[in-house]
Computed example of a mutant assay.
Amino acid sequence: MKRDQIDSHLRSARETLRTEAEALLHAAGRIDGRFAEAVERIDALRGKLIVTGIGKSGLVGAKIAATLASTGTPSFFLHPSEALHGDLGMIGPDDGVLAISYSGESEELANILPHIRRFGIPLLAMTAEKDSTLAGYAETVLDIYVEKEACPLGAAPTSSTTLTMALGDALAVALMNKRGFREEDFASFHPGGSLGKRLFVKVADLMRTEGLPAVSSKTSLQEAIVVLSEGKLGNVLVLEEGRLTAVMSDGDLRRALMKEDFDMKRPVIDYATRNPRAIDDEEMLAVEALRLIEEAKIQMLPILDAERRVRGVIHLHDLVSAGIRSGRKAGTKGTKA
């Protein structure tokens, strides 16, 4: 690609971002009590907030509805055309409607406004035209006017859709703040996401309890290596009278091979790590177990009962496969059993 082409593309990108950023800044300066009124009206709903719009406004509206729903405000998107053909029945007496149209005159949207009014429920609007049909029906109007679209023709919705989406985000954040929406609340709506897994998946959900590689402390190293290999966990549990006393890992075996007195016939306990890192709480969050594994630079964490009998193990690979990722420290503390 020629240098002048690269420069042209970069100028275009920078101008687009500046134009849309300026639209957001201008809107931030215009925001007033109507925004606070909208937040209060939505918060007071006993039912759902139905978001509706056509074309690009509809696409943005679907995103706003999804954001609200995931942050504690029951919400869904309703297409105006579908509403006219039966889906108005999805709107209940305890619901509210957020209608989006830059011009405020979208035909499909305008056609359902009288029917929404019949329900006697709150109607909020996002529009750039305060004298439009939509604004006339709405109880609260949020201004999405932009001086300039980023599109060089001034035709494609660009700055205006960015502002509309950002204003939807602002509503969601204001409602989160008002309701004291916490990290735990967000995770409960996203149990499959990384945050949900950090806050809800426990050791008990992932630990292995059957077919664990274990040997007696008197077992020869040679026999222990066979169990280590067959166990496919990179570790073997070393027990005395059924209680955990040591763990031999692949790393322990490599280090043993470097010793001058290395002897395959000697007891495995001579080469294993005594008093290994372990926990006694299978209700511990999996992310906390991962933190302990990473801190100790090990691969496997045994879970013991009060008498140091092994109830199960949790392996680094199981945590990673389950999508558990280390983040900030969880509140639960591990114990060395």
Results as ranks from 00 to 15, higher is better:
E260M: 08
A272M: 09
I293A: 13
L206K: 12
R198M: 01
K202D: 06
D270A: 04
A246S: 14
E294D: 14
V247F: 14
L206T: 13
G193W: 15
T273I: 09
R255K: 08
K265S: 08
L212Q: 08
I293W: 06
K202V: 08
L237F: 13
L237Q: 10
L253F: 15
E307V: 14
M264H: 07
E283V: 00
R254T: 13
N275K: 05
G192H: 13
E260F: 07
S216R: 08
D263V: 02
K265C: 01
L253S: 01
A296I: 00
L253T: 10
R243Q: 07
I225V: 15
L237C: 00
V201E: 14
I303K: 04
N275R: 12
R274T: 10
D270M: 02
G231Q: 10
E288P: 01
L292K: 05
V268T: 06
M207T: 03
E260H: 04
D305L: 13
L199K: 07
R277Q: 01
S194I: 05
L292A: 02
M264V: 02
L239T: 09
E210L: 15
E294G: 10
M258R: 05
I293V: 14
E240N: 02
A204V: 13
A272S: 12
A256H: 13
R274H: 07
E294Q: 11
L228I: 04
I225G: 02
K259S: 12
L301R: 14
